[in-house]
Design a protein around this nucleic acid. Sequence first.
DNA 1: TTGTATGCGTTATCAA
DNA 2: TTGATAACGCATACAA
Lengths: 340, 340
Amino acid sequence: MSSLAEVARVAGVSVSTASRVLAGSSHPISAKTRAKVMAVADELGYSPSALARALVSRSSRLLGVLVSDIVNPYFSVIARGVDDVASRAGYVTMLCNVDRRTTTEITRLRTMRDYRAAGVIFAGSGYVDDPREPDLAEAVGEARAQGIHAVSLAARGIGCPVIAADAQAAAYEITDYLVSLGHRRIAFIEGPEGMVATRQRRDGFLACMRDAGLAESAHCRPGGFDYEAGHAATLRLIARPPLPDAVIAANDEAAVGALNALRQARIDVPGEVSVAGIDDLRVARFVGLTTVSLPLYEMGAMAARHIIDTPPETAAAVPAETTTLSHRLIPRETTARRPG
Amino acid sequence: MSSLAEVARVAGVSVSTASRVLAGSSHPISAKTRAKVMAVADELGYSPSALARALVSRSSRLLGVLVSDIVNPYFSVIARGVDDVASRAGYVTMLCNVDRRTTTEITRLRTMRDYRAAGVIFAGSGYVDDPREPDLAEAVGEARAQGIHAVSLAARGIGCPVIAADAQAAAYEITDYLVSLGHRRIAFIEGPEGMVATRQRRDGFLACMRDAGLAESAHCRPGGFDYEAGHAATLRLIARPPLPDAVIAANDEAAVGALNALRQARIDVPGEVSVAGIDDLRVARFVGLTTVSLPLYEMGAMAARHIIDTPPETAAAVPAETTTLSHRLIPRETTARRPG
DNA sequence: TTGTATGCGTTATCAA
DNA sequence: TTGATAACGCATACAA
């Protein structure tokens, strides 16, 4: 309510002086006036307008994060990583759910631009051959030219740096682990059709199976990223014997869905069939699911840190390089060794 | 990058005219100049500064939501409700994780105030006898006096309207359902110690048991709101026979933890022991958990709607009333009738 | 229908 | 060490 002008007036100093003490400037100020101004500000309940500050400094302490759906734990962990470093640095994170729609991403990016956000983080993975991706790339280019940082948390051709895990390598590694355990016939429950993330994970699986000389016993099945999809796909698997030695799902939720389907059908896991996922979400730890841990939290945190630590002027100059964060195999109780 | 002044200059009109067409004012404008201005704006890639707009209009289209932890599905569903109505109305939601710390809530509220947020939504429940609650209430009062709306999504004495479900009634109802199914000895796994939400849910359970003349067979056990807490509490229950007829957990996650503990111990659910939760999160549907559906999404949505639809001037005048949204019993497969 | 002038709350430049 | 004053980008009351 009370402005700098008001504080200055009551304290009997000029706005500039008031600004200097309240904004924590390095400009020399006498101890007496400083104390006076602080006292008045406190008394009046002065709250500096971040809006005015951002307006004059031409860049706000606002950080945008675009997720598909915050209810999806994959994204909420990322958002948490973003917000933790953002809030610690005095930034505020703006959350946008885009429901995997590229056009929505473009719209929301525009909004972030209107607020002169310090940067925006794209958490989702995009689609294979997305016809709107060039439009997004263009919008990202404009934003960056304007001093707004952009970071993608998945491999995507939108012309900005990428901070991500190597999902394909992660899928390869979990597959390799199952193979090393002696599994041969392995079913892979894919993610939602058309997504880049879906393709990467499947490709990792297939590459490993090929390298192991097991191409013939690699079985990809349509699925999705949620419990129900994993459950349904597994039910179909059960309906058509023979059962595979192991089931790998494209992510943890689907893997838990698979696990439940198997156990409900009284199929012993890991006795008869092993089950594994990818992501290492909380639910994976809870049910003892073997998986690959992806540095989701760290991706969000690192992206935020990059934006906060890099001056806006250089936003356009940041190379669109990929920083790959490492994943880690997490063997738990849903997988077991198969006798030779 | 390009400002209204620039657009006006290039289009050969005054800033006011440019503003009128670009801000969608109702002020009459000739079709020709309107077209001209729009064309120039488009060509220059004009992006209106939401910051400047907010500064001059003294209120932004920013909506703050304070959650304990966005990774907790209880809160991410609320956040989704908020963001859906916010974004549809052209607002942006600012997300803050406060980790159940009242002091952090105060700090973040201040930040929202600095951004002249249209309103802030408190999603968490607070503590019983929280010594900092008065401070929060004071900060909320200041914010409201300044035209910033505040809404709490849980019964809390912080001097603002409350939009919430009746958690106690919900707990009562799920208990009543189990009683009606013929259960007598019922264990209740409580939430985190000291939280208001914990107390409400337990009180609802106890009230029902008392009303049913079953006070003697009501057993409250310390627990928590996550899988692990429910699991651990149930393990302790198993270790000290006799087993109860049913286990009610303070929320769904803990209930799923209980469910797993029971099944791992080869105790048939619902054959030997029934299990129920509260909240109706996705995981509950997936595992077939009997629970009470709380209108989390709707609470967030309604709070956002209230803030957006109520003019800032009247923020301080909004009565601190409680709007109670209805819950609904969701019987599923983890509960069964006990023979008389 | 269009333009002029003023103010929103800050910061920064330049004097004093 | 302090103070005018000019932006920052926009909306609006008031004129024309």
